[in-house]
Each structure stands twice: as structure tokens, then as C-alpha cells.
């Protein structure tokens, strides 16, 4: 565990701060890895709603890297019931370790586009309490993520995606592997959440945390 942690510290130091602001919403094409265009077919701001795939822009590189590795080695997206996960696992299988590193680094430097969905005011209120009361302690006041806890950014994610992942954590599709400590932490926490709690907090984040 210690070794992994210090490795991550190294990665962190090597990286510039997350969320580098680029001009406009356009994704910078310089240094864009070849496979990135494929990813964006589903993972861009414009396509993510239809595909159900999360926006990757602005996500922490270490998180992206780890998820891709997990998809590739079968720790994530292997279950039959996880249809979307299976699709992603198939994609990840085609990536080399170097591909994964450069893709992760690339997307982490891009700026996410804010997409907001609307929701019932009472649900949002409940979600806000839930978020501030619990989630924000690790994922940050603005859902920007906190590397100190290996907590990914959530702000660019859609309500549907967050709900689905919370369900996956709770039902054991994610966060089961012994070595995946952050995943296990999230899985443990998700068991405190009712279906209603999940809907509420996902709605709140999906709505841009009003």
C-alpha cells in the first residue's frame, strides 16, 4: 500500500495541477493521442448523454489510468449485468500501457464542459445535504476531487452515470478487488446510501450543484 502511495505521489509531482484552463471549450488537439478521437465518440460532452459514458475531460490522470487498467485486466466491466462496462472492457483491451498513460494524461489536461440536468427542488435539497454532509468530505466542496483520498472529480458527470456507479459499488460490481483500496472505500460508503439517497445526490451533482 505504501509503495503504491508513494508512486502516486511521484505521479502527482510530475503532473501540473489538474484542470488547466484552456481557451474556450474546444479540446486542444496538440499532443492528442491517436486513440483519443475514438474515446470521444462516446465520452465527449456532446455524446455522453446519449452513450451513458462519463465525460473524461478534467478527470484526474491517476484515476483514469487506474480505471483503464481495471477494465483491461477484468477488474471492472467483466460482469454480465454490466453491459456498458463490458463495452468499455472491450475497448480497453486494445490499449497498451503506454496508450493508457498518454490518454489519461491527455484527458486530465482538458477542460470539462458543464452539462446540467434539472431536477425536482426537494430532491436537489436532499442531494445537497447528502453531498455536503458526506460526499464532499472526500470528493471536495465543488466535487472537484481530492487526490489525498484518491477521490475522483464528479462535477463533470451526469446524474445517470453517478447513480449507476453508486449502484455498482453498492451491489459489488465495483470496489470488490482486494487491491483496489479506493474502490473498496467507496463500496463501503455506498452501503450507507439508500436508493433515494443515490438518486438525490446524483441529481444534485448532475444539476451542477445548485
Amino acid at each position: 500500500m505504501r509503495a503504491i502511495f508513494s508512486l502516486m505521489t511521484l505521479v502527482l509531482i510530475a503532473l501540473p495541477p489538474v484542470a488547466v484552463v484552456l481557451s474556450g471549450n474546444a479540446l486542444a488537439t496538440t499532443d492528442m493521442p491517436a486513440q483519443a478521437a475514438t474515446c470521444l465518440a462516446c465520452h465527449s460532452a456532446a455524446t455522453s448523454a446519449a452513450s451513458g459514458a462519463p465525460q473524461l475531460a478534467g478527470q484526474q490522470a491517476t484515476y483514469l489510468q487506474k480505471q483503464l487498467q481495471q477494465f483491461k485486466n477484468g477488474q471492472r466491466g467483466a460482469a454480465v449485468s454490466d453491459v456498458k462496462g463490458q463495452q468499455m472492457a472491450a475497448m480497453a483491451a486494445t490499449l497498451s500501457a503506454d496508450d493508457i498513460n498518454s490518454l489519461a494524461r491527455y484527458f486530465s489536461k482538458q477542460q470539462a464542459e458543464v452539462i446540467t440536468s434539472s431536477a425536482d427542488a426537494a430532491l436537489l435539497d436532499q442531494g445537497r445535504r447528502q453531498y455536503i454532509g458526506s460526499c464532499g468530505a472526500c470528493h471536495g466542496a465543488k466535487a472537484e476531487g481530492n487526490m489525498a483520498f484518491n477521490a475522483p472529480a464528479l462535477s463533470m458527470l451526469s446524474a445517470d452515470y453517478i447513480t449507476l456507479q453508486l449502484q455498482h459499488f453498492k451491489t459489488g460490481l465495483r470496489g470488490k478487488d482486494k487491491a483496489d483500496k479506493p474502490g473498496r472505500q467507496m463500496a463501503l460508503f455506498s452501503r450507507n446510501l439508500s436508493e433515494q439517497d443515490m438518486q438525490a445526490v446524483a441529481a444534485y451533482i448532475g444539476a451542477g450543484m445548485p
Binding site: 454532509g133 458526506s134 464532499g136 472526500c138 472505500q185 463501503l188 450507507n192
Partner: peptide, 18 residues
Amino acid sequence: YTGRLIGPPVQVIQSLYM
């Protein structure tokens, strides 16, 4: 136990330190 007081909730700490 749940909810933010001054520090993070115990539930979160339980998850972090398992």
C-alpha cells in the same frame, strides 16, 4: 456519525480507514 459537523462524518472515516 452522518453529516458534516466540524470534521467529516464518521461514516466517511469508516470508509477511508476500513
